[in-house]
Computed example of a mutant assay.
Amino acid sequence: MSDHDEAGTVRPSALAWVGRQLAAGERVVATEALHGGITAEMRRLTIGTRDGGTRALVLRTFVDPSFVAQAADLLNREADVLALLAGTGVPAPGPVAVDPAAAHCEYPSLLMTHLPGRTVLDDRGLEARVPLLARQLVAIHAVRPAVRPREYEAWTTADAVVPPDGADTAAWAAATDVIREPAPPYEGRFLHRDFHPGNVLFDVAPPGPAGPRITGVVDWVQTSWGPVDLDVAHCSTNLALLHGPAWGLRFAEAYEEAGGVLAAAAGERLYWRLLDALAFSTGVRWVARPWQEAGRTELTTRTVEGRLDAYVTALLDTLG
């Protein structure tokens, strides 16, 4: 077996466990690290088949101690969600096997099918991709599971917000006061909860008349039940930090153009949008790192913090 790079190496127990999930005559012939994740190691496994061909699987492994403790819940939830999505038309991986308590692998792991395509984080072509992202999120919110996933969790509180250096202190104080209030009432829906360009795969064929298309949505460990505004808010914040604040504002418009329905009151929309944006205040460098690894080296921590500050101010000016 040859590795694409050392980071792609699969640990011995995990490799043996994967082997037990394969069909007779199949074996792992190559592994490759997939970059872009923050909380888990992701590897693409090339499987040699009996007829001399190949197919691919993906292995998610939680190794960070802060996530290993909750890995069983996260991996079981994702495996269940992937099984649910198999009949919905949402392009998600299929679950193959899960070892949530590391009974067989060195660390908690999930084995799933591999989807074609790749993440696209460039500014070029964004105008065509944003409507596709919006339509895909509307389709996710249309899923009606027989059993609801867990209720959403807020990823920050007013007391945890730390404005970036040089931020507009008055704007951040006003924004923090908004999320200090009780959450607005909402009609719950099925949420991805971490929907953003880094978790969406696009076709990689040369540009043609048909334009780009989405081939998959990945990373379903945070799936929840809650307000669609929160999923829209999370993608909006990511677009604002990746491509500029105007694109964060544009995404909500695209979601409605695609048939999605957001909170009727501007103040309610502002609450959900700020609840997500302010959650980035203490983790910008962790968010920027995979973007830099993907080639967006200009997105330094300071640059992304500046975009976050501008986006928070733009939300207050637009919806406040």
Rank of each mutant, 00 (worst) to 15 (best):
D165T: 07
V28E: 02
R273E: 10
P197S: 14
A101M: 09
R27F: 13
A158G: 10
L84S: 03
V304L: 08
A79R: 05
V143N: 08
A170K: 06
Y186G: 00
R296P: 01
Q222G: 12
W272A: 12
L275S: 12
P185M: 01
L84M: 14
P91A: 09
L278P: 00
L22Y: 08
D229E: 15
G226K: 13
G19N: 08
L201T: 06
G198R: 03
E26G: 11
W247Y: 15
G216Y: 05
G89A: 15
D122T: 14
H141R: 01
A71F: 03
A102D: 07
G25Q: 06
T301W: 13
A69S: 14
R50H: 12
R273A: 15
L137Q: 06
G37L: 08
T31D: 13
L132R: 00
E253W: 01
A24Y: 03
V200W: 06
A254V: 00
R144I: 09
F67Q: 13
R193Q: 08
S109F: 05
D122W: 06
D168L: 09
V63D: 13
G87K: 10
V98Q: 12
V10K: 11
V217N: 05
G117L: 07
P185Q: 08
S2Q: 14
R148S: 14
N199P: 07
A167S: 15
P95V: 01
L315I: 11
V29E: 10
A264N: 09
R273N: 03
T318V: 05
R150C: 04
R20N: 02
A30F: 04
A7D: 05
P290D: 11
M42D: 01
E268L: 07
G226R: 11
T46M: 08
L201S: 05
T49C: 03
H104L: 00
L201K: 01
S224P: 06
Y271S: 03
E6I: 12
P145V: 13
A174P: 00
L133E: 03
A40P: 02
P290V: 13
A246T: 15
G283D: 00
T9Q: 13
A146I: 10
A266G: 04
A33C: 06
L230W: 11
P245D: 12
V287S: 05
F251S: 03
V28D: 02
P185G: 06
L85F: 14
G295A: 03
V98Y: 12
G295T: 07
A254G: 03
L15H: 15
E106N: 11
V284N: 05
